[in-house]
Design a protein around this nucleic acid. Structure first.
Length: 301
DNA sequence: AGCCAGGAACATG
DNA sequence: CATGTTCATGGC
């Protein structure tokens, strides 16, 4: 087992991150305990199980199952996953000018936007989550991952990795329907896997575009991807800081709570809400989601 | 029991 | 262009 450290940036709250990752849902892609997070990575055709904990100044990374030197790749993954390179000082300085919003999300200082690096995983997770409650969405994701993903048995525990899109390209709709996917979700997932296989869309091609709006246009060409899904994927996978998942049920609820209005905001009101916050839309959305979850004590390992 | 969940496609007016 | 319907199950 190898281990190494990554220095914590200013404003880093490990506990807030653990809370976001473990908001009472059954996420099969990481395990959160009192003091550490475990996650299965895929690095150069190998499954690598890592455990992340914190010391005063550092994040401590332990590679649990692998002898190879994967420090560079694991470090890169964690930096991306935890968004460690973001300067949040500027964000919190900005929030000070907006008391109602700061009151709602200022308590989450040090929470960092948790990314989903793989574009297929981000899109698939968004499609699964369309219009259903999160409890059910996590259940569907688990069924998909257990059937088509990769797994590693370590010390009697099974750890899972999200399936690569190539695992879904020749799946039948009926197969997914058996797992209680709706026909549409099944069609969307398979179709998007096929689009990625054909390379008619890719993270690289999106990154080559100049702005978020152009990326949204490209993503929305795919069946099953509308404005919400496109923005969600841009926020979680490409880290477009100006992406806004318009229409998101949680976002609308949180904006209503922030503005203390009687009704859910219209799209115009959402645009108006974010108008003064250009460049921090994704972070504000992420923090607003966190503000909706009731924190529970972390479960024992 | 009924309504809404981290929506989108498709049909219709 | 604007509105209505459908999807599928869970939680409150």
């Amino acid at each position: 087992m190898s281990s190494f450290s990554i220095p914590k940036p200013p404003y880093f709250n490990f506990q807030e991150i653990c809370w976001f990752l473990d908001r009472g849902y059954d996420d099969c892609l990481h395990q959160v305990s009192d003091t550490s997070i475990r996650k299965l990575l895929r690095i150069e055709n190998e499954l690598v199980l890592i455990q992340i904990s914190e010391t005063t100044a550092d994040l401590r990374i332990e590679v649990l199952n692998c002898q190879k030197n994967v420090k560079a790749q694991v470090t890169a993954f964690v930096r991306d996953w935890f968004d460690l390179d973001r300067d949040l000082d500027a964000f919190y300085e900005h929030l000070r000018s907006f008391p109602p919003l700061e009151q709602r999300i200022g308590q989450f200082k040090g929470l960092r936007l948790l990314s989903i690096s793989d574009l297929f995983e981000a899109l698939a997770w968004a499609i699964i989550g369309q219009q259903i409650n999160l409890t059910f969405a996590y259940r569907l994701k688990r069924r998909l991952v257990e059937k088509y993903g990769e797994q590693l048995l370590f010390e009697g525990e099974l750890y899972y990795h999200f399936p690569h899109f190539s695992q879904l390209i020749s799946v039948e709709v009926a197969e997914l329907k058996e797992m209680q996917f709706s026909t549409r979700k099944a069609e969307y997932l398979i179709g998007i896997a096929q689009s990625l296989q054909k390379a008619s869309i890719s993270k690289t091609s999106l990154l080559a575009l100049s702005n978020t709006d152009a990326m949204i246009v490209e993503l929305c060409k795919l069946r099953g991807i509308g404005e919400w899904t496109a923005n969600y994927a841009l926020m979680k996978s490409l880290k477009r800081m100006d992406s806004i998942p318009y229409g998101d049920a949680g976002l609308l609820k949180a904006i209503q709570l922030t503005n203390q209005t009687e009704h859910r905001p219209s799209k115009e009101e959402v645009t108006l809400f974010f108008e003064p916050h250009q460049g921090w839309e994704a972070y504000i959305t992420f923090y607003l989601w966190q503000s909706l979850s009731t924190k529970k004590p972390l479960s024992n390992p």
